[in-house]
Design a protein around this nucleic acid. Structure first.
Lengths: 319, 319
DNA sequence: GTGAAAGCGCTAACAG
DNA sequence: CTGTTAGCGCTTTCAC
């Protein structure tokens, strides 16, 4: 392995001068600089990143914690983070958790070990209590409105659902159901809260069996239609927190001869391209921006005010 | 910063004993082991990953080069790689390229700097000639059938397209078009070759203006329909190399009143859940497996025989 | 402007 | 079983 010392030797200078040249520091006379450069070329020298990181105590790498990699939502967040990271010379390390608590804790451990300079938690499996002891003094950004956390960016899900409910009310719906990714996590809780608050404000009943959980993939939408059909009392509208699931619902409804929106209205979230294809009325979620802001929160060390992102409704044909 | 030396001091042993305990090496008397563990606990010691990596000359991290993060294809590959990597204690570093040559070269440079132990190239922007000089003696896996490359895993696109063409021929189609992601890259070239070979074998004409390029996203399918309509002589069937694009085509055809498959048949690739939703006849592509095999090629140092993955046709209703 | 030298924190060969 | 010691390769302070 050819190292900085060999370069110094061949160039007839000290290692510190080599280091200076390599890092574009000033105060190196042109003649020596050229000698160093020549030696680098001759010995085919390439600097060792780990040595740099150890010495600097920094890795210019940020860890991203996410449950799945094959979901558009997380793909889009990643794009946002990666784009912003690139601008600042940072790379991304992926910690896929499948919502396994241990896998998530591993990511925090890696942060403690200085394997990454920070962590962006896009979605979480452990309780905040558990995580707190792992993140003292460390740079961790959460993508949810978590109390007692300094760095956070989130979409205003509460407001979105309330707005959505009002929109459905205005269309004459009183019996409204909800399809959720999951119930754990602030984002989901906020949606549920908005759902209940809006129903109460409008004086409408909320039924537990109108809340569908674990709706994640396209095929889950299909299953929802089955469950909806089996209901004795059916909601006339569904708020669905993912366009993938909505697309599954709409397509399955089509097969079953269920008329959307007359028999079942769908109000969706994401405004992913697929909602356009299926003409699904959907809230635009600035997911990419969520990723970008998350990186900024990490990067600007003293950026401690939460970032709140708003949604906007795209009316199409399912309500 | 509390380091291994401090632990040794507090525990009254040498650093090597501490190291042994920390790495579960045998030959440490239980009493000392306990003392070390106690000291670790007391000082809240956490080992520094970069120091380990520098010392070992290994990072247990593999780099994945990909153009986009928000495409199902790459999400699925990532899942495959990540799943397999996890089993062997490896992490993933992402190098998103947007097909920018320099961004791709940066990944190779990081490999040279020992920032990652290897690289999986899921899709490539630079010529192999360019890359060759960056990968001597390094562990690089390609996801395409590249000549002069040892480690490679790929789907048999040539065979898939030929099979698909024969299938379309058997359904009476002679005028067949092709929708590609892009023309650069072995995978695309193989598909084009299969396309031409099959047409020639069947004695059918191939027209340049029946080949649509840059078809990547859902919306691109929509545009293809527009271009198809504008054609004086229209193909009666299209082979489309992405379910996303096919979904766009099918949905847009529906809006325009173009009857699928009677007026336009669609034979797609991926067998992604979306093809099920749209009843699209599609070749199942073992993409996740592609990722898994890619990691294995990396991991098994002397695993030098190429891995070829086959596709299988899922008949639905668009042909 | 430049170099010596002291880290950064851990691993592992070697001697005992 | 255990300790000494020499790295791994780079950065950075400090003195000249």
């Amino acid at each position: 392995m050819t190292n900085i010392r060999k370069i110094a030797q061949l160039a007839g200078v000290s290692v510190s001068t080599v280091s200076r040249v390599l890092n574009d520091h000033p105060y190196v006379i042109e003649e020596k600089r050229q000698k160093v450069l020549a030696a680098v070329k001759e010995l085919n020298y390439i600097k060792n990143a780990n040595a740099v990181y150890l010495s600097k105590g920094k890795t210019y790498c940020i860890g991203v914690v996410l449950p799945f990699l094959n979901l558009p939502y997380f793909g889009e967040i990643l794009e946002g983070i990666a784009g912003e990271a690139l601008k600042h010379g940072y790379h991304l390390k992926i910690f896929q958790t499948d919502y396994e608590k241990d896998a998530e804790l591993d990511a925090f451990h890696r942060l403690q070990m200085k394997e990454v300079d920070g962590l962006i938690i896009t979605s979480r499996a452990n309780s905040l209590d558990t995580l707190h002891s792992f993140m003292e003094g460390l740079n961790v950004v959460f993508c949810e409105n978590l109390h007692g956390v300094a760095k956070k960016v989130f979409i205003n899900h509460y407001e979105a659902v309330r707005t959505g409910m009002d929109y459905l009310h205005s269309k004459g719906h009183t019996d409204i159901g909800l399809c959720l990714h999951r119930t754990f996590g602030t984002n989901s809780e906020e949606r549920v809260r908005g759902f209940y608050d809006a129903a109460e404000a409008a004086g409408n009943e909320v039924r537990e069996d109108w809340i569908f959980n674990e709706c994640i993939h396209l095929k889950d939408g299909r299953d929802v239609v089955g469950q909806w059909e089996a209901l004795k009392d059916k909601p006339s509208a569904l708020i669905v927190t993912s366009d993938q699931v909505s697309a599954g619902i709409v397509s399955q409804a089509g097969r079953k001869g269920i008329v959307v929106p007359d028999e079942l209205a769908i109000l969706s979230f994401d405004n992913h391209p697929i909602s356009d294809v299926f003409d699904i009325t959907s809230f635009d979620m600035p997911i990419r921006q969520l990723g970008e802001e998350a990186f900024r929160l990490f990067f600007e060390e003293d950026h401690l005010s939460p970032v709140i992102l708003e949604t906007s409704l795209h009316e199409r044909k399912t309500v």
